[in-house]
Deep mutational scan, measured.
Amino acid sequence: MEQGTVKWFNAEKGFGFIERENGDDVFVHFSAIQGDGFKSLDEGQAVTFDVEEGQRGPQAANVQKA
């Protein structure tokens, strides 16, 4: 798993971006967030995640709040 920081996340649209430790950004969809209840992330929040190849390039999977 990688570690990163939430760059931004739009809860209304259900997606955002995580900044990886290497400085690259990776797309995150709310469906990739682990846990119960409303799935959202806060700007600046530390997270761990896997990276999978999506239809439009790399995207975060198995996102967990650190």
Results as ranks from 00 to 15, higher is better:
residue 59 Q to K: 09
residue 26 V to A: 03
residue 26 V to P: 00
residue 53 E to H: 12
residue 28 V to E: 00
residue 65 K to D: 07
residue 30 F to H: 08
residue 33 I to G: 02
residue 66 A to D: 09
residue 33 I to F: 06
residue 48 T to Q: 08
residue 34 Q to P: 06
residue 48 T to S: 10
residue 64 Q to Y: 11
residue 36 D to I: 11
residue 31 S to W: 07
residue 60 A to W: 01
residue 66 A to C: 10
residue 9 F to P: 00
residue 33 I to D: 01
residue 31 S to G: 05
residue 9 F to W: 15
residue 6 V to I: 09
residue 57 G to P: 05
residue 15 F to E: 02
residue 61 A to H: 10
residue 62 N to S: 06
residue 44 G to S: 05
residue 53 E to I: 15
residue 64 Q to E: 07
residue 32 A to T: 05
residue 25 D to Q: 11
residue 42 D to K: 15
residue 25 D to R: 09
residue 36 D to W: 10
residue 54 G to N: 08
residue 34 Q to I: 13
residue 53 E to T: 12
residue 63 V to L: 05
residue 18 I to M: 03
residue 45 Q to S: 08
residue 9 F to T: 02
residue 58 P to W: 11
residue 31 S to K: 09
residue 30 F to L: 05
residue 52 E to W: 12
residue 46 A to P: 11
residue 27 F to A: 02
residue 46 A to N: 09
residue 15 F to T: 03
residue 20 R to G: 05
residue 11 A to W: 11
residue 42 D to Y: 14
residue 51 V to C: 06
residue 17 F to N: 02
residue 62 N to G: 05
residue 58 P to H: 08
residue 36 D to A: 12
residue 39 K to W: 07
residue 27 F to Y: 07
residue 27 F to S: 02
residue 52 E to Q: 11
residue 23 G to T: 06
residue 2 E to W: 15
residue 49 F to K: 00
residue 35 G to H: 08
residue 60 A to V: 03
residue 62 N to D: 04
residue 9 F to N: 00
residue 52 E to T: 13
residue 44 G to Y: 05
residue 48 T to V: 11
residue 13 K to G: 05
residue 40 S to A: 09
residue 26 V to I: 12
residue 45 Q to Y: 05
residue 23 G to D: 10
residue 7 K to P: 00
residue 58 P to A: 08
residue 50 D to M: 14
residue 44 G to L: 05
residue 32 A to E: 05
residue 23 G to C: 07
residue 39 K to V: 07
residue 47 V to N: 01
residue 16 G to Y: 01
residue 7 K to V: 05
residue 27 F to N: 02
residue 56 R to Q: 10
residue 54 G to K: 08
residue 25 D to A: 09
residue 66 A to Q: 12
residue 56 R to K: 11
residue 21 E to N: 13
residue 56 R to S: 09
residue 33 I to S: 02
residue 19 E to I: 15
residue 1 M to V: 13
residue 56 R to E: 06
residue 22 N to P: 08
residue 9 F to K: 03
residue 59 Q to I: 09
residue 15 F to W: 15
residue 66 A to N: 11
residue 8 W to D: 01
residue 37 G to F: 07
residue 15 F to C: 05
residue 58 P to T: 09
residue 2 E to P: 05
residue 19 E to Q: 15
residue 1 M to A: 14
residue 54 G to T: 13
residue 57 G to N: 05
residue 18 I to W: 01
residue 62 N to M: 07
residue 51 V to P: 03
residue 12 E to H: 15
residue 30 F to N: 04
residue 37 G to H: 06
residue 24 D to A: 15
residue 29 H to W: 05
residue 58 P to V: 09
residue 17 F to M: 09
residue 52 E to C: 09
residue 34 Q to K: 13
residue 37 G to E: 07
residue 35 G to F: 09
residue 6 V to M: 04
residue 44 G to T: 04
residue 57 G to D: 02
residue 51 V to F: 07
residue 43 E to F: 13
residue 32 A to N: 08
residue 66 A to I: 14
residue 10 N to C: 09
residue 35 G to T: 10
residue 49 F to A: 00
residue 34 Q to T: 11
residue 24 D to V: 14
residue 64 Q to C: 08
residue 38 F to I: 08
residue 50 D to H: 13
residue 44 G to M: 05
residue 47 V to W: 01
residue 59 Q to T: 08
residue 5 T to K: 13
residue 16 G to I: 01
residue 31 S to Q: 07
residue 23 G to N: 11
residue 50 D to L: 12
residue 31 S to L: 07
residue 14 G to A: 03
residue 44 G to K: 08
residue 46 A to D: 09
residue 32 A to C: 06
residue 6 V to P: 00
residue 48 T to H: 08
residue 61 A to E: 06
residue 16 G to D: 00
residue 24 D to P: 15
residue 21 E to H: 14
residue 38 F to E: 08
residue 42 D to V: 14
residue 53 E to N: 13
residue 23 G to Q: 10
residue 22 N to C: 12
residue 51 V to K: 04
residue 35 G to R: 04
residue 43 E to L: 13
residue 25 D to S: 10
residue 63 V to C: 04
residue 17 F to C: 05
residue 43 E to V: 15
residue 37 G to A: 07
residue 43 E to M: 14
residue 29 H to D: 03
residue 33 I to C: 03
residue 42 D to S: 14
residue 50 D to V: 13
residue 33 I to W: 04
residue 29 H to F: 10
residue 65 K to Q: 09
residue 16 G to Q: 00
residue 24 D to S: 14
residue 13 K to T: 06
residue 17 F to L: 05
residue 54 G to Q: 07
residue 23 G to Y: 09
residue 4 G to Y: 01
residue 48 T to C: 08
residue 17 F to A: 04
residue 46 A to M: 13
residue 38 F to L: 09
residue 57 G to R: 06
residue 47 V to C: 05
residue 60 A to P: 01
residue 11 A to M: 11
residue 19 E to K: 15
residue 2 E to V: 12
residue 40 S to Y: 14
residue 28 V to Y: 04
residue 52 E to H: 11
residue 26 V to S: 02
residue 19 E to M: 15
residue 30 F to Y: 13
residue 26 V to R: 02
residue 12 E to W: 15
residue 40 S to F: 13
residue 48 T to K: 09
residue 59 Q to R: 11
residue 64 Q to F: 10
residue 2 E to H: 15
residue 34 Q to M: 12
residue 36 D to R: 11
residue 66 A to R: 14
residue 45 Q to A: 09
residue 16 G to M: 01
residue 57 G to K: 05
residue 20 R to L: 06
residue 39 K to A: 07
residue 42 D to L: 14
residue 34 Q to A: 12
residue 18 I to H: 00
residue 1 M to S: 14
residue 56 R to A: 09
residue 32 A to K: 08
residue 53 E to F: 13
residue 17 F to Q: 03
residue 20 R to K: 08
residue 38 F to H: 09
residue 8 W to G: 02
residue 10 N to Q: 06
residue 62 N to T: 05
residue 23 G to K: 12
residue 37 G to K: 06
residue 19 E to G: 14
residue 17 F to K: 04
residue 65 K to P: 12
residue 55 Q to S: 13
residue 21 E to S: 14
residue 41 L to T: 03
residue 55 Q to K: 15
residue 13 K to M: 10
residue 10 N to R: 10
residue 6 V to H: 01
residue 44 G to P: 02
residue 25 D to C: 09
residue 8 W to P: 00
residue 63 V to M: 02
residue 43 E to G: 14
